[in-house]
Amino acid sequence: MNEAQLYGVCGAGLVGIGLYGAILGRSTLRRLLAFNLVGSGVFLIFGAIARRGGLAGGAQSDPVPQALVITGLVVAFAATALAVALLIRLATVAHEAASAAATPGSTDDPSTPATASQGRGERGPGHVGAGHS
């Protein structure tokens, strides 16, 4: 096994761990981190492909996959930032709603989608509490 293969296998392992966490993770934040692990695995595989392509062409590494990884990192960073912003807003809104529900006389907003009513097992992303506790 040469080093490109070693890194490729490591990347595949990271993708596997990340997928496990993203699908079975209990809290939303944990799922988000698991997605980042999948992303890291994919970028490592890109690195292995760069090394492999470079060795085949007689160079140290192929610059094209490395350039792609940089773009991919930016995209993954933006995705994580957006997701964290959503989580923070969700926690704030849920907190406000909880304190509003504590005061009597508040009514439900009619335009709030009531998806839970027809999906019995639906729990939604939920468990935000684990994220910021």
Binding site: A83, L90, V93, T112, P113, G124, G126
Partner: peptide, 9 residues
């Protein structure tokens, strides 16, 4: 709304 943020996430 909270449900919209959940859906978006």
């Amino acid at each position: 709304h909270a449900a919209q943020f959940q859906a978006a996430f």
